[in-house]
């Protein structure tokens, strides 16, 4: 299928894997810390993009092209998920404005 990989490339792939795992960890930090729903949605969206990059990297790692199709499919699904989350956020503004208003006020003026 493809030529044996050189030591340099295998080192590069290991470094790239480490960098990507660090990126995953940082993204999870943002998902957990919030503070707002929008922040979490952004982090989850980035998580999807990172997963696509990871699968592409894994394709190189195990030298199997088949996994590339998984990356394409994942890019599609992650996109739809993000759009759905955004719609949800906008709908919530309309459905429960009072609640959002209260939360906003509380954030601006912490308990005296």
């Amino acid at each position: 299928m493809s030529p044996a990989i050189t030591p340099f490339l295998s080192w590069c792939l290991t470094i790239a894997m480490v960098l990507l795992f660090a990126a995953f960890a940082l993204t999870i930090v943002r998902v957990l810390r919030g503070p707002t729903t929008a922040d979490r949605i952004i982090a989850i969206d980035l998580f999807g993009v990172l997963a696509v990059a990871f699968i592409a990297l894994y394709t190189l790692y195990v030298q199997q092209v088949v996994f590339l199709d998984a990356a394409i499919a994942l890019a599609l699904v992650a996109f739809f998920g993000t759009v759905a989350y955004a719609r949800f956020l906008e709908r919530r503004v309309v459905d429960r404005p009072e609640e959002r208003e209260a939360a906003q006020k509380e954030k601006e003026e912490p308990h005296a």
Partner: peptide
């Protein structure tokens, strides 16, 4: 747009 609309 959703983030802006949610007022955060």
């Amino acid at each position: 747009r959703a983030a802006y609309a949610s007022g955060e």
